[in-house]
Design a protein around this nucleic acid. Structure first.
Length: 202
DNA sequence: ACACGGATACTA
DNA sequence: AGTATCCGTGTC
């Protein structure tokens, strides 16, 4: 059975959290999907992070608890969904970049204005459109909202010996669409997933 | 390859 | 005020 993820899950560092989220199911009202692609952004020493230039983002980390949603508009077009990671060895955010749809495909297709299951949520802007996530969800905390919640996949509910097996299916790669601090391998995907935004370069 | 488009943080 | 920048998508 799936169980809700609690705040301590986000009380680590962004890289660890981003890896751990692969395979978890994001339940959002009548829609849901398995997370197959994430990226980590660090508060310090990461020139691709909003915290590098935006004072408001540094303030966001200061005043909100771990697990808080950080939703912002990108390129004036797309809302992007992030989780605040705080309280471990480093603070930062995890950007949710792609989902494998598991529930509410028709509703997602209607919101997206197009069908094609593989591309319903194969990008950070696509998945927020499919889930109807906007800035009205900024500063929300899923740990206290029963309608919008995180659930561990059944794969991650097994014992710890099996769990290490699940982690072997996560691939680390360079982050997408950034120019600064591009050398970090802070993009994580589920190996072989057809639902990612871009194939991992080989 | 390129248009689309708004919030943020600069300069002046 | 004006300008540069930004973690993307769909269509050309």
């Amino acid at each position: 059975m799936a169980s809700q993820i609690e705040r301590p899950f986000f009380e680590t560092d962004p890289v660890t959290c981003a890896q751990s989220l692969i395979g978890c199911e994001l339940v959002w009202g009548k829609t849901a999907g398995r997370i197959v692609e994430t990226e980590a952004y660090a508060e310090h020493d990461d020139h691709a992070s909003h915290t590098f230039l935006r004072r408001g983002t540094r303030k966001f980390i200061e005043i909100h608890p771990a697990g808080t949603l950080y939703v912002y508009l990108n390129y004036g077009v797309h809302w992007l969904l992030n989780f605040l990671v705080k309280g471990g060895s480093a603070n930062g955010f995890v950007l949710i970049r792609a989902l494998e749809p598991t529930e509410g495909r028709n509703l997602m297709a209607r919101r997206r204005g197009r069908s094609g299951e593989r591309t319903l949520c194969s990008g950070p802007g696509k998945l927020t459109q499919a889930f109807d996530i906007t800035n009205r969800h900024d500063e929300m905390n899923l740990c206290v909202d029963p309608r919008h919640c995180f659930a561990r996949s059944s794969q991650e509910d097994v014992d710890s010996s099996r769990r290490s097996q699940a982690k072997a299916d996560v691939v680390a790669d360079e982050r997408i669409g950034i120019t600064r601090s591009a050398h970090h391998l802070w993009r994580f995907t589920e190996r072989g997933s057809k639902f990612v935004s871009r194939r991992v370069k080989s």
